[in-house]
Design a protein around this nucleic acid. Structure first.
Length: 197
DNA sequence: CTATAGATAATCT
DNA sequence: GATTATCTATAGG
């Protein structure tokens, strides 16, 4: 795996079901223009998934979701926050993975500056926080992640991935498509008590 | 630690 | 007109 350098390998990684990519991306390092860190939380959004923007077909907002695997889908939510997604599966399907939290490792000072000195634990602990820290915006929506200036490097060693219900949605809340790195202290919210095991 | 309110505006019905 | 893949601050246990 050599994600972020060879375009063909990008495709191979992303050309799978969103819940598989969401799990595999945990532990990988995501960088955008020198800032970023290790992915510790993600969510899958699928083709026949009522909680997905793509569920009712292509609209102006979500058209990037129907692009090739590895496409960046960035949209604004609640009128003020950006959310970063990476398209998975096949072109035209409308599946993606939402990047929800990073353990910050690169460009700490720049990220702290953009987040007005917020504690490192909360620097990238949430979809809106992470885009603010990395300066991700709608400007890169629809681009291939490499063209957008991102790199994604494979994880080293083992990661304990836990699948739990997704956050902030009101449909299909039973689907365990939120993937988190067990034991991480950089999550947007903790693993539910009932599933902490 | 959990719970809740308020901000704030694009998007979709 | 309703909804929303969120964040922050604040209040209470």
């Amino acid at each position: 795996m050599n994600i972020g350098r060879a375009r063909d390998l990008d495709r191979a990684f992303f050309d799978r079901a969103p819940e598989v990519v969401a799990a595999d991306i945990i532990g990988c390092t995501l960088l955008f223009e020198g800032c970023g860190g290790v992915v510790v939380e993600s969510e899958a959004y699928g083709q026949r998934d009522p909680a997905s923007h793509s569920f009712r077909g292509e609209t102006p907002r979500c058209k990037s979701m129907f692009g090739p695997p590895g496409t960046v889908y960035v949209y604004r939510t609640y009128g003020l926050h950006w959310c970063l997604n990476l398209v998975t599966e096949a072109e035209g399907i409308g599946a993606a993975v939402l990047i929800r939290a990073l353990e910050p490792t690169h460009g700490l000072s720049a990220m702290r500056g953009r987040r007005s000195g917020m504690d490192d634990r909360l620097l990238c602990a949430g979809p809106g926080r992470l885009t603010q820290a990395l300066a991700v915006s709608g400007a890169i929506d629809g681009l291939d992640l490499v063209a957008a200036g991102m790199t994604l490097t494979p994880r080293e060693g083992d990661v304990d991935v836990v699948a739990v219900p997704r956050i902030g949605i009101s449909q299909a809340t039973d689907l365990p498509w939120r993937m988190v790195a067990r034991g991480s202290r950089f999550l947007s919210r903790p693993i539910p008590r009932s599933m902490a095991a």
